[in-house]
Design a protein around this nucleic acid. Structure first.
Length: 445
RNA sequence: GCCCCCUUCGUCUAAUGGUUAGGACGUCAGGUUUUCAACCUGAAAACAGGAGUUCAAUUCUCCUAGGGGGUACCA
């Protein structure tokens, strides 16, 4: 059977670092197995789901290079869920319950107070027809619970090995609310069956969901897929990740100017036994991937480390990988420009500044006016090449007696306006005589 | 409260019942660049704590502490 996996976000917000890691692992696994990767929008909550968020999710995935074979929306599939509900009612595995949320909460509190696990007591199962009739007459509408078999549910998790969950320690999950809307479990399982999902790969926050879901697959006459639960992410300080942390949204990372491949490289290698390193393509990540490499401890997502990785990625990037994007940014300058500046970039957008240095206006910093004036006078005539810098700076040194830092720092500040930057040997010919002369004179070109 | 998972350099991690506990990022130093950055080389840097089993424990067992997850009419 063809490997088929799905990434199932709900369009109630933008994707964040944790989401994207799940998406990436699914996508990579599908690629590795020659299988299919589907996007399933879990939009059963009509209140909170919006088309804007759905579009945002598509943009985020596309930006990262994660294409999907097919998109499914749960809101298109309510008839399928209704069919499943009828089937479960017919087999007696779905039963009506009438407790209000307040009543359930009270029950849980009492159980907790007695040191008992807060598991639903199945009181609704013991209701007589007369009692049920009375409740309905009072105007109560039932919600519907899936009757779990109280047995040990076992599966061989792709990353965690053999897992056991004692279904007796679980409440019978509510599948349908009193208003007829569905909770996560039922649509998810029905979709997985209909779409032929072979591997459900998700975060370990879903481990406990797996046992009821396996029983639901079976109740609906389907063979459960394989399950894999990867470790979760925590923040740089080891704290639980907040969903609202904008810095960790994919949108935020993109707006910060990070490379999609850097984000993907980082997300796919933290929490694994592979070193965190930039990869030249998603295919390289596919080659490196193995479930066995995933750690079981939570991994730290450190935005600072991501930036360092982004810089390392840029430093090694060939010109043709960025030529189009540089042009789109309005950064002129060809391969020579790129070779000169790339090792000083943290984000691609930094190239804008060096573009101005080379072919626009910057504010020169005159640290040593006398030296700069002398340097301006000694500027050779063009054409300039890779040897110009050495010859010229030597001449300045001879004329002024300045050397080392005292010689180079004022020149760098005047020519680029900054203390740090690419090799002036490469930069100077790109700046050209007119600009250099103007900057050394303290005026902008 | 109860259940599950986890804990090795600052960080991500490897390995092992007997090892100089390995790598990567970061840090520091040296080299190179007659400056900085980049780059190259090198160094420092870890088995959470306590018991137990054993000739021998970082490795196996138990306890404690800490972290994460779950325990929903969220997904």
């Amino acid at each position: 059977m063809m490997v088929t996996v799905r990434f199932a976000p709900s369009p109630t917000g933008r994707l964040h670092a944790g989401n994207i890691r799940t998406a990436l692992i699914n996508w990579i696994f599908a690629r590795k197995e020659g299988g299919r990767f589907l996007l399933r929008l879990d939009d059963t909550d009509a209140e909170r789901s919006t088309e804007e968020f759905a579009q945002g999710i598509r943009e985020d995935l596309t930006w990262l290079g994660l294409g999907w074979e097919r998109e499914i929306r749960q809101s298109d599939r309510f008839d399928r869920y209704a069919t499943a509900v009828e089937r479960l009612k017919a087999s007696g595995q779905l039963y009506p319950a009438y407790e209000t949320q307040e009543e359930l909460e009270l029950k849980r509190k009492r159980q907790l107070a007695r040191g008992r696990p807060p598991v639903y007591d199945r009181a609704a199962l013991k209701l007589t027809d007369a009692e049920r009739g009375k409740l309905e007459a009072e105007g109560r509408k039932p919600h519907w619970r899936f009757l779990l078999e109280t047995r040990d549910v076992v599966w061989n998790d792709l990353v965690r090995g053999e897992q056991h969950v004692d279904a007796a320690s679980l409440s019978d999950p509510v599948l349908v609310r009193a208003d007829g809307t569905y909770l996560y479990t039922l649509p998810s399982v029905v979709d997985d069956i209909d779409l032929g999902i072979t591997h459900v790969i998700r975060g370990e926050d879903h481990v406990a969901n797996t046992a009821p879901q396996i029983q639901l697959f079976e109740a609906l006459g389907a063979k459960p897929p394989a399950f894999g639960h990867h470790n979760l992410l925590v923040g740089a300080e080891g704290q639980a990740l907040s969903k609202r942390d904008r810095a960790l949204s994919i949108q935020g990372l993109r707006e910060e100017g990070l490379e999609p491949l850097a984000v993907a490289s980082y997300a796919a290698t933290i929490g694994t036994s592979d070193p965190v390193a930039p990869h030249g393509s998603l295919d390289e990540l596919v080659t490196a991937f193995a479930f066995a490499k995933l750690s079981r401890a939570p991994a730290r997502f450190d935005a600072h480390e991501l930036r360092l990785l982004n810089a390392r990625l840029l430093h090694a990037l060939p010109y043709d990988a960025v030529a189009e994007r540089l042009a789109a940014m309005g950064v002129a300058g060809g391969e020579g420009f790129w070779e000169a500046v790339r090792s000083n970039l943290t984000t691609l957008a930094d190239a804008r500044f060096w573009c101005l240095v080379v072919s626009g206006d910057i504010a020169p910093v005159i640290d040593d006016a006398e030296l700069c004036r002398a340097a301006a006078r000694l500027l050779p005539s063009e054409p300039w090449d890779g040897t110009t810098w050495t010859a010229w700076s030597s001449a300045v040194k001879d004329a002024t007696g300045a050397k080392g830092r005292a010689l180079f720092q004022p020149l760098r500040l005047a020519l680029t306006g900054r203390k740090h930057g690419p090799e002036l040997k490469l930069l100077l010919p790109l700046i050209g005589r007119d600009r250099a002369a103007a900057r050394l004179g303290g005026k902008t070109a």
